[in-house]
Design a protein around this nucleic acid. Structure first.
Lengths: 236, 236
DNA sequence: AAGTGGTCTAGACCACGGC
DNA sequence: CCGTGGTCTAGACCACTTT
């Protein structure tokens, strides 16, 4: 494992183990350098990583501090592929409604950057939290990249299979959010009424070489879904 | 200006000027180093910055590529304080409904980390896009930090005033999203019906030293609002 | 003035992709 | 094998905060 990743993990563990709260001060750079026996740049890189993840913030001339918000049960929109991290303490299950190899819709073809006659996996499933329907998902996977899927994989974590099983590396994702009203089918699956609010999330996931491999449309039950985003000021 | 920021700006401008598209290749590191006359680390830092901003992605052994999604009119959830960047090409106006110095609500006091008897600025305004109501905003500013506000400032960009006028530096923000149904007052301002969908966004903005200075609750017109988030894989 | 983080360099070596 | 990006170092110097 890379040094700076390892150090970042250690620091995160340290925060966890000592139950540090927002604003608590971490050891100074010098201390961390000697403690881990690495150069300043490496420690800095670890801290930059933790800053991106929203775990710490650094103040010049002052120190390194813990960043931690208090709310629980929110889905982190930046933890890419959804919940596993944000909601790991909750009871999540999923039901696979459909799994097949087919041709993409126009929309899926555009987003996956494939031709209309190329094969894709189509997956439709419902996610439950504490037995309540949380979301209805439709996903398209480029079969040229994701060469094989089955019900077992799809019932568990597809992304875990992609990284572990297929040895692929996920690079980045684009996610688009809309608010609207449920249609009849969505309402049925989510156990709500037609025309009640919904959040629709469309995501395109790319490998680390930039190839899109997954286009997903997820409809959330508005009663169960809350999201958070931690931003840092590189946006000026 | 810092070298790496300047270089990042230049590269972004280069992409813009040459109308590069997703997947287009940028000059190699070596080239950028000599072109800008800086060390490898500095170019790398620029590229990391652009990667965080979702402008490029780097592939080891292969090159540096442009990252660009096609959809227009989406609000970037990471560009902290809202629209200015994402929607700058659209006609945005705002109407100030209220501006006063008062005591915080319980909720605002908790989020701003102030006592209930400390002064805060309370601002209520509506944002319009192309003359259509986009959002209804209620904001609380810690008066100990944001020492002065007036109608003119509030009608324009408050954040611009905070950075330029007051010389403060914004550090990071936490944003929470909920979906719900409009109440009567919200419906009136947004020119919708009661019980129609709404997106409610609560944000806490912090200075670069970690102090929270702004707690805002924004209710979006579901017909006007679409959001996007670009994630990168540091989430593993 | 002392403490602490941020920027930048020059260079060594490593890891991955593509020819 | 070569081109290309990624990690890591040691050290100089800078900028902001705290005492």
């Amino acid at each position: 494992m890379l040094k700076y990743q390892h150090i970042a993990n250690e620091i995160e563990k340290y925060i966890e183990d000592h139950a540090l709260k927002q604003g608590d001060k971490l050891p100074v750079l010098e201390k961390l350098m000697t403690q881990f026996g690495v150069s300043k740049s490496t420690v800095t890189k670890s801290l930059d990583l933790l800053e991106k993840k929203g775990v710490v913030f650094q103040v010049r001339g002052s120190g390194i501090f813990v960043r931690k918000h208090k709310r629980k049960g929110y889905i982190n929109l930046l933890a890419s592929q959804g919940f596993k991290n944000s909601l790991e303490e909750f009871q999540l299950t999923s039901e696979v409604l459909q799994l097949k190899v087919t041709k993409p819709t126009q929309e899926a073809a555009v987003n996956l950057n494939v031709e209309l006659n190329q094969d894709v996996y189509y997956v439709k499933r419902i996610r439950y939290i504490h037995g309540q329907p949380l979301s209805l998902e439709e996903s398209y996977f480029n079969k040229a990249i994701i060469t094989y899927l089955n019900k077992e994989i799809v019932a568990e974590s597809i992304f875990n299979y992609i990284t572990e099983g297929l040895g692929l590396k996920i690079g980045f994702s684009d996610t688009f959010l809309h608010i609207g009203k449920l249609n009849e089918e969505e309402a049925k699956y989510l156990e709500l009424e037609k025309d009640e609010p919904k959040l629709e999330m469309e995501s395109v996931f790319h490998l680390n070489n930039g190839q899109p491999f997954d286009f997903s449309k997820v409809t959330y039950n508005y009663q169960q879904s809350q999201f958070f985003v931690q931003a840092s000021s590189y946006s000026l």
